[in-house]
């Protein structure tokens, strides 16, 4: 086997683990034994391998400007992700990647940027947000709309506080339900779209979350006059090989692993309306 084998995982060591919510956690990794630095573009994903347990596609959540650290935020949904959740500092995880398409952060410099995230969908958007903030002067207005289930399910609380404190970024967080001790917004994230300011002729929207949420959010954006070609979303499908050979992740003609996960909405608009595609 050569190191060029796209199916062979490369060992990375866990530097740090952080619990985000009851069922999500963040792993900070570095190449094992001084391996080469890891570059990626915001929106791309890796295949993470837990020795003997299996592999799962996980989006990259770290700062694209830092090639010495690889950050993944994951939700426990099965045996493999539970195995990741049990990792401790010093443990080793296999990494293949990065794979897939990226958020159009460079192509859209100069325009207003709207991020819309739902649930764990904030994780794949985080590198794009960090990139935009690191190059803040190159963009117009920057807005983040983030919906979560309850206040306890809100990810990246520290980041959100910091981003909110940036005077030139609007951050709206809303939850589906809450008790009285939550002073933030309650309601669906799509309902925030009509409120936010942006230049519809010069803006880009990047969405990640459950497909239902993205569909409704796109409708609201289109209602406000954003061209479909300026709306981008990240799709989730069953990815096994991540290099376009296994066929599992197809949506119509697209292999989500290599033609996506980030798509322009007009590439998918019709397919999203058809059941079980």
């Amino acid at each position: 086997m050569t190191s060029l084998d796209p199916m062979a995982p490369v060992p990375f060591r866990v530097l740090r683990t952080d619990r985000e919510t009851a069922d999500t956690f963040t792993l900070e990794l570095a190449p094992d034994e001084g391996g080469p630095p890891f570059g990626f573009r915001p929106g791309q994903f890796n295949m993470l391998y837990v020795f003997g347990k299996g592999e799962a596609p996980i989006s990259i959540s770290g700062d694209p400007g830092r090639r010495d650290r690889l950050v993944h935020t994951t939700r426990v949904v099965g045996a493999v992700t539970a195995g990741m959740g049990a990792l401790k500092k010093g443990d080793v995880l296999g990494v293949r990647g990065p794979f897939g398409t990226a958020w159009p952060v460079d192509e859209t410099a100069g325009s207003d940027v709207i991020f819309i995230a739902g649930g764990i969908g904030l994780a794949p958007l985080r590198p794009a947000i960090l990139h935009v903030l690191a190059n803040r002067r190159r963009y117009g207005r920057v807005v983040l709309l983030y919906g979560a289930r309850t206040p306890e399910d809100v990810l990246y609380r520290r980041d959100l506080r910091r981003w909110r404190a940036e005077l030139d970024m609007d951050v709206y967080v809303t939850v589906d339900r809450a008790s009285r001790d939550w002073h933030g917004d309650v309601g669906v994230v799509t309902a925030l779209v009509p409120r936010i300011p942006f230049d519809r002729d010069n803006c880009v929207a990047m969405l990640c979350g459950p497909e239902v949420m993205m569909r409704f959010a796109v409708l609201e954006l289109l209602k406000r006059g954003i061209p479909a070609s300026m709306v981008h979303l990240s799709m989730e499908r069953n990815m096994k090989c991540a290099v376009g050979f296994c066929g599992h992740c197809q949506v119509g003609p697209h292999f989500v692993c290599k033609d996506g996960p980030v798509f322009r909405y007009d590439e998918l608009a019709r397919l999203l309306k058809i059941r079980e595609v």
């Binding site: 391998y49 066929g247 599992h248």
Partner: peptide, 9 residues
């Protein structure tokens, strides 16, 4: 050409 990937121990 579709395949699946299985990890075992």
């Amino acid at each position: 050409f579709c395949t699946t990937v299985e990890d075992t121990t």
